[in-house]
Design a protein around this nucleic acid. Structure first.
Lengths: 178, 178
DNA sequence: ATATACTAGTACACATGTATACTAGTTAAT
DNA sequence: ATTAACTAGTATACATGTGTACTAGTATAT
């Protein structure tokens, strides 16, 4: 449902192809709702069958032909309905925590190495979030309030990853003191 | 893989049935790696075929018969290998953020209601994390260091949800000032 | 007396996500 | 001259996760 929601939102901004959608996903929502191209093309076909979208085949000479999807009235109504759905807690799938659960069989230094490697990954992600490019995406919002919202989405990632980084450092300290 | 890792870890503590496993999942790892009973029973069969586990059917008179699974040597080796795997960033599937992405079509008060409903969910989750029951689970660790680790897992959840709660409140304030 | 919850599983169907291979022309780089 | 990257999609297999129905006996509650 959320994949369809995200896709509908983009297509509502502007009619576009699956190929375009994939690029928009990768440059914006990727960090809180990633999608592969297989998923996107499959879901476009589904949404067309559900009459949320209509297709038009655009013939191109220099490039392969493309299918441009447009949102229908039913699609717009569905979009609004989904946006207002009561929010749920994001499901967590935290592999590192599972690893740590059973890591008592490792040497303390190896547990610390796990946490340090993890911290590095987080730091890389934070670097991307703080990059000028990410910031400028939020400024593409169509209204002042939409820009405020998009900045809040970016803030969410930065806040969450900073908390995670703090936690990793605290945990490393506790292991060292132990 | 992580499901198998989590299951192997439990069975390595003590031979047990799928039914037992489900209960352990629900009372401990559930918040960072949830599993349904369908998934657990299916995966037990797979792991037996891969020679990570052996089964023994225990006949019971007052209850249905049960299948008790035990870890093999290969299972123990695999467990250690998986624990040491280089950590990855947890994939994020944050539906609320997708909703907020396209929420500019709502009234500001309705966006705030979304964020408030979300905060409530987080608060509920935090209450569970802070409950005496959750705390005592960490104290069941078999060694001092394992207890330290299990407390760190609990700390991870508390830290992450507090950060999320702070973010939601900040975002509500920004929307109100707007 | 009846309904509910617990124990312990099997069997499916379906939804969602991932990974690759394939086609096929165009442009840019080494 | 050849390789790589870009555009735009199809096809398919597989992995993972969710939901529900079914069996069947025991214990507890109303």
């Amino acid at each position: 449902m959320s994949l369809k929601l995200a896709m509908l939102g983009f297509i509502d901004m502007m009619p576009m192809s699956g190929y375009d959608l994939k690029k928009y996903f990768d440059s914006s929502v990727q960090f809180y709702w990633a999608a592969t191209h297989s998923q996107i093309y499959r879901t476009l076909r589904e949404m067309e069958q559900e009459n949320l979208l209509t297709v038009e085949i655009i013939n191109q000479t220099e490039f392969p032909n493309k299918k441009v999807y447009q949102i229908t009235d039913k699609g717009k109504q569905t979009l609004t309905k989904w946006i207002m759905q009561s929010p749920e807690l994001p499901p967590v799938r935290h592999k590192l925590l599972v690893q740590l659960s059973w890591s008592d069989r490792l040497k303390t230094e190896d547990i610390i190495k796990l946490l340090e490697a993890y911290s590095e990954q987080i730091q890389n992600r934070l670097d991307i979030y703080n990059s000028a490019q990410q910031t400028s995406i939020a400024e593409l919002g169509r209204t002042k309030r939409e820009r405020l919202l998009w900045r809040a989405l970016q803030d969410n990632g930065i806040t969450a990853y900073n908390a995670e980084l703090d936690w990793a450092r605290r945990t490393i300290e506790k292991l060292k003191k132990h």
